[in-house]
Amino acid sequence: MPKIEAGSVREHRAQRLAQLIDAAEAILGEGGVEALTAGAVAERAGIARNSIYRYFDSIEDLLELVVTREFPAWIDAVEQAIAAAATPGERAAAYVSANLEQAARGTHAWRASLSRGSLSPSARERVKHLHTSLHEALDRVVRELGHPQPELAVAVVQAMVDACIRRIDQGDDLTTVSEFAAAATRRLLADSHS
Rank of each mutant, 00 (worst) to 15 (best):
S194K: 12
V78L: 10
E34D: 14
V154T: 09
E125N: 14
V127S: 14
D191P: 02
Q15R: 13
R126E: 13
A104Q: 13
V33L: 12
G39M: 13
S194D: 14
C164N: 07
S178D: 11
V33S: 11
D22F: 06
Q80S: 08
V157D: 00
I21G: 00
L17E: 07
I27A: 04
I21N: 04
I168Y: 04
R166K: 13
A109D: 14
E34S: 15
R116Q: 14
D162T: 14
L62G: 03
A26D: 10
E25M: 12
L189F: 03
L145C: 06
A155H: 01
P88D: 02
G29N: 08
K3Y: 10
E64F: 14
W74M: 11
P2M: 09
I165P: 00
V96W: 00
L145R: 06
E125K: 05
R10M: 11
L65N: 05
A73V: 11
D76P: 00
P148R: 00
A23Q: 01
L20F: 07
W74G: 00
D191E: 11
R54P: 02
T37C: 15
R126Y: 03
A123C: 07
R166V: 11
G7A: 14
E64A: 12
D22A: 15
A18Y: 00
A84T: 07
A155I: 00
L189W: 05
L145N: 08
A155F: 11
S120G: 11
A163H: 12
A159D: 07
S178N: 08
A81T: 05
A104F: 09
R69A: 08
L188Y: 10
T107R: 14
H135I: 10
R116M: 06
Q170P: 00
E101F: 04
Q158F: 02
L17N: 01
E136S: 03
I59A: 08
A123M: 08
D139P: 09
Q19W: 07
T176E: 14
A83Y: 12
Q149S: 15
L138Y: 11
I4D: 05
R54W: 08
L65K: 15
P88K: 00
I47E: 10
L134P: 11
A98E: 12
V161M: 09
D139L: 11
I52R: 05
A94L: 03
H12W: 02
A81L: 06
L119M: 09
D172K: 06
E11Y: 12
A86P: 13
E34K: 12
E179R: 08
L119H: 02
V67D: 03
F56Y: 12
R13F: 06
T132M: 06
A93F: 00
R126W: 02
S51C: 04
